[in-house]
Design a binder for these strands. Structure first.
Lengths: 210, 210
DNA sequence: CGCGAATCTTGACGACTGTCAAGATTTCTT
DNA sequence: AAGAAATCTTGACAGTCGTCAAGATTCGCG
């Protein structure tokens, strides 16, 4: 009973432990990254805001960039299904549009640091080639996420989407980024605008039903 | 003839000379900033890619941030009227849409480094409060620029825009950013997609004419 | 021409960065 | 419980950064 607390076969194997530590480190790093951004978040600062010392990073990651990319991928997993509930629970097209707008606003309120980090990293990938592969993959999964919303919306409205998935994603990404910027600037109404714009925009994405 | 080449009254006053130097420095700095991005462009690197030495920066600018903000504002002036020709020369709604799409593609081809710098700086402003005022102003003037295009487009089509200026700007900014990213990633078709998307999107911005 | 002001160069400073290695500590195995 | 493997800490390294000051250089006016 002292050695094996978990009777399940081979739980807590050394390899798993390694992965758990990497995740814990990533989770802690994401906090600092969301606060300071990619450029200003040093490994020492990241370590200080965690339970580890600054040297341990190179035990679990080859270099800073590998840590960053791991963090971004980790972050992706936790947020790429954020709107699946909206898609599943909506009872009508109008209901879906409202829920979607609410959820967009909610995620800005609750996770603004994570979103600005994402935009930071995407911008950095325009200069740093090593980031591009991860950024491209995440961008694709975000596009898929939006496509699921739009497709379900069209289905509920009894018609087809009038625009392709990349365009829909680009549009929502644009107004979302604008709202995030306004929110961080303390502009009153930035979030309410996003909600209104979303509800107004959704019907325009559909092919005429006549 | 040796001293005063320009007979115009009081040209090349000491104050003007100061401003000219600032502009020359900014122009040179923008090249390096567009190449390396905000975080990696050091003052020494900026100076090396210019005719000046690294110390001269602090003679014309108080610190690095003042140089950056000056550069961004300078860049704004040169590009915020890029689509005025399109607005002025278009002969019909469809013609304007085509010209606009072409111009969007053209500016990515010719000035990709400047555009990625702009997105970099806008992202940085989400972390660095000192950048926000300048970024907000530029964002506003870009929105106005898009609004002029959309308004003229609606006018030529004999109707009114169906969406507010911030939404139109957000949408085009979104798909433009996407195309820029695709272009930098070497994705074939990224630019052609932007052209097609623009032409297809424009009619959707109008109120029904019936 | 000569002198004072403007402009520029050079070199140095302290602080911070990513990286790494050597040793301390913990954990696991036998 | 003892030894081996893993994990972690600490301290140091070579660079780079923004900033600044002292001196060299250039410019403009009398």
């Amino acid at each position: 009973m002292t050695q094996v607390a978990a009777p399940r076969a081979a739980r807590r194997t050394p390899a798993d432990k390694h992965d758990e530590r990497r995740k814990a480190l990533a989770e802690s790093a994401l906090r600092t990254l969301g606060e300071l951004g990619y450029a200003r978040a040093s490994l020492r600062e990241i370590a200080n805001n965690s339970e580890f010392s600054h040297g341990v990073v190179h035990y679990y990651f080859h270099d800073k960039l590998e840590l960053i990319v791991y963090c971004v991928r980790y972050y992706k997993q936790t947020c790429v299904h954020r709107y699946d509930g909206v898609v599943a629970e909506a009872t009508s097209a109008a209901d879906l549009a409202t829920r979607f707008g609410d959820k967009l606003v909610e995620t800005i309120v609750e996770e603004a640091p994570m979103h600005r980090l994402w935009y930071d990293l995407r911008s950095q990938s325009m200069f740093e080639e090593s980031l591009r592969e991860a950024v491209t993959q995440i961008d694709q999964s975000l596009e898929d996420m939006i496509a699921r919303v739009v497709n379900r919306y069209a289905e509920l409205a009894g018609t087809e989407p009038a625009i392709a998935a990349p365009v829909a994603y680009g549009m929502f990404d644009g107004i979302f980024q604008q709202a995030l910027l306004g929110h961080l600037n303390g502009r009153d109404g930035a979030l309410e605008d996003l909600r209104t714009q979303t509800v107004a925009l959704m019907p325009m994405l559909l092919a005429p039903t006549s």
